[in-house]
């Protein structure tokens, strides 16, 4: 394992030091060093938007702190939910009195820690409501949607919730918009290689040469099936076959597409995949009105990709188009 770190148990600390310094125009550390907040948070008159999750997914989660997006994030260890205390401190960092929308992903650790943090917040009179992202189709059948993991659809949830908050929306409005955003998203990942946590020093799981894991999660959680590697086009087809019928996405709809590399995937290859995704959607009469292609939500050095398709309506379109500025995503005014 040839990688870049010092003490393997301090990778998050070391990263945060670099991050806070490089992006000091945008973010600052809260008193709790595991909370990164918008430089101006809490922002007066605005609902606070908070998220959080394990590290190793950069630019998620902390990269989405910024104007028109997230106000504070709780930062966990690699692949581990932040502590309840960190979520709570993120609420405090973000709350300007209008309440906090905590928009996070559906993982056992995050669910429990957020719940505990909400109890702490209640004691201090901070109003917190949550939306739990569950856009990952392969992680549970449609009838068990509440068991599905949150993956890259979270970014679009933050974008929409962040925009709604920036537009002056109330806590309920922000929550409603974010919930609609994630309810409109369907995602799937394909893994082409495993990832290695520096402190572990060997791959978290195994993907054989010539095979790929269809439906993989952001921590290497297994998906629907392991199949022989295929062409980019067949990969796109496979992903769309799973994603499109689930909402379902149908002719005449407008969508946003987010194609994210998992960390080690060359940018070139994301665009090769995107070309096919666009072709198929067009052939089905589905119109892409916004694309995001890049490393938006990664899993350390995993090779692979996640595809998210989001059904749009006027409100969601307006929210996606609303200006934002962050390390992970910038939309110009």
């Amino acid at each position: 394992m040839n990688r870049i770190f010092n003490d393997p148990d301090l990778v998050v600390e070391d990263m945060l030091r670099g991050w806070l310094q490089v992006h000091s125009d945008l973010v600052a550390a809260a008193e709790n060093r595991r909370v990164v907040r918008h430089v101006r948070a809490p922002i007066a008159g605005k609902v606070g938007v908070v998220t959080g999750g394990g590290s190793g997914h950069e630019p998620a989660f902390l990269g989405y702190v910024g104007d028109g997006l997230v106000d504070a994030v709780a930062v966990g260890e690699i692949f581990s939910s932040p502590t309840a205390k960190s979520f709570f401190d993120a609420f405090k960092a973000a709350d300007a009195g209008k309440g906090v929308a905590c928009l996070y992903g559906n993982y056992a650790g995050d669910n429990m820690n957020v719940k505990m943090a909400m109890k702490m917040a209640e004691k201090e009179g901070i109003r917190v409501r949550t939306v739990v992202a569950n856009d990952d189709v392969p992680s549970a059948p449609r009838s068990d949607r509440e068991k599905r993991r949150g993956v890259a659809g979270e970014i679009l949830m933050w974008k929409v919730g962040g925009a709604r908050a920036a537009m002056g929306g109330s806590l309920d409005e922000v929550i409603t918009a974010a919930q609609k955003a994630i309810d409109s998203c369907r995602s799937i990942g394909i893994g082409l290689s495993a990832c290695t946590i520096p402190a572990v020093g060997k791959p978290n799981f195994e993907i054989k040469d010539g095979e790929m894991e269809v439906g993989i999660g952001h921590h290497g959680e297994p998906g629907i099936k392991v199949v022989k590697t295929t062409s980019a086009n067949a990969m796109a087809d496979l992903m769309l076959e799973t994603v499109l019928p689930d909402l379902p996405f149908e002719a005449g709809m407008e969508v946003a597409v987010l194609l994210s590399g998992l960390g080690a995937t060359p940018i070139m290859e994301l665009y090769i995949l995107q070309a096919r995704v666009a072709e198929i959607l067009a052939s089905r009469g589905i119109q892409i009105s916004r694309h995001f292609v890049g490393n938006y939500f990664t899993s350390l050095d995993m090779m692979g990709v996640t595809l998210t398709v989001m059904k749009l309506d006027d409100e969601l379109k307006a929210c996606l188009a609303y200006p934002c500025r962050s390390v992970g995503m910038t939309v110009e005014g």
Partner: peptide, 9 residues
Amino acid sequence: RSMGGASGA
């Protein structure tokens, strides 16, 4: 306070 993760909770 120190662990996080599912097991911290």
